[in-house]
Write a protein that binds this DNA or RNA. Structure first.
Lengths: 218, 218
DNA sequence: TGCCGTCATCTTGTATACAAGAATGATTTA
DNA sequence: TAAATCATTCTTGTATACAAGATGACGGCA
């Protein structure tokens, strides 16, 4: 292991994003320092970063709580991503590097493959991320992708909960196919509608509030 | 003073953004702890935050340097902001709260007033920020504005250097007026072109590289 | 002269003792 | 019995001593 701090950071992030650590859970400095066999000082660095990326809320002299899902920021991130990605897709439709089409098709093909696996949801979510990430890398907007990741903790958990119940993997896959069609056939006019449908089509705050109220920010 | 840490953070941020602390300057923990009469531990918290918001680069066991201006991320932030803000303006054109028009007009009027002052640049930049900030608050996108602020250190310094030489305050003010016109007359078709001109019209990387090479990232 | 190794002294990174606010529960008092 | 107060024991916040990597200067040596 190269750097224990980044290992711990990655693990805590993963546990929070996958809801292994539920919103409201307490992350005590002393408990974590014993668990990871490291002193409180480097551990506080990790917690500081988790705080700045909204994974936890720090209540001075009281404790650190895993943040509750903030539906307002989820809505705004979806607005940001849909606005941005429909622009990216139009850019790609006008000037797409060859390897780009190959890469996106490869991802969609993989998504078809994992549909029947036991851990379909898990694998599908990862590939969905890969698809959108590729849109950013192909247009040279890696910086913006990283920026979005920095505030993505609410959206990622929201999507995970949302997908748990309503099985719409097939629909999402179909939408990816349609977006690829737009790029390959330079069909700029359909992009806006498709992106809106793909990213904003499934905002059902009420569903989450009814079924996962204990995870939601008041 | 409520919290010394946030005071120190704000002051260092301000010094870096206004180029009082030049890119490449060293921020030593011990020097700062003596200057602010505080121990290294809380000071490291401040430096950690500056690092995560790209104000400084940390070289382990060597030192902390004020970051150089990264022109690539400047370009991407401008892309992000122009894409986002032209959408916001269209939203406002379709449904503008009354107080919104008043507030934006008030800011533009203030900009006219400060044009002749000695510190015109300083005051104008602040009001320019206020204008764009208002676009976000009126549409309920405060979260996105804050997100952009988190990675704005390169863009803010870029714009400051850029405005130093080419005196285009009058042009910027005129563009604000035109954008307001679009909103008030629901002229959606002109928005894209105007926003592009306003935010992206003045990307002159070469000018900066020639005149401020010592501030630019290699 | 030129090169190499050692050491002194910077830097940040870590561990730990102590300070101080917050919460909980017990004890005392009305 | 109920309420209030105090003390205990959590929590994080701070100061500081020490560890360890990086750097540069100095001196020895070929």
């Amino acid at each position: 292991m190269a750097n224990p701090k980044s290992e711990i950071l990655q693990q805590l992030k993963r546990d929070i994003l996958t809801l292994v650590l539920k919103p409201g859970s307490i992350l005590s400095e002393t408990a974590l320092s014993e668990r990871f066999e490291i002193s409180r000082t480097p551990l506080r660095d990790v917690l500081k970063q988790l705080e700045l990326e909204n994974y936890i809320d720090v209540y001075p002299k009281k404790g650190n709580l895993v943040s509750y899902i903030d539906l307002d920021s989820v809505e705004q991130i979806i607005y940001l991503r849909s606005t941005l990605e429909k622009e990216l897709i139009k850019d790609l439709a006008l000037q797409m590097p060859l390897k780009g089409t190959l890469e996106l098709n490869r991802i969609v093909a993989l998504q078809e493959q994992v549909m029947d696996r036991d851990d379909a949801h898990e694998a599908f979510l990862e590939l969905d991320d890969a698809f959108h990430h590729t849109l950013f890398t192909l247009t040279g907007r890696e910086f913006l992708w990283n920026l979005i990741q920095q505030c993505n903790v609410h959206y990622i958990r929201y999507r995970r909960l949302h997908l748990l119940k309503r099985d719409k993997l097939e629909a999402l896959l179909q939408e990816h196919r349609r977006l690829l069609d737009c790029i390959e056939h330079r069909d700029l006019d359909s992009v806006d509608r498709l992106v809106m449908q793909h990213l904003r089509g499934d905002i059902h705050a009420k569903y989450l509030q009814e079924n996962f109220a204990e995870y939601i920010q008041s």
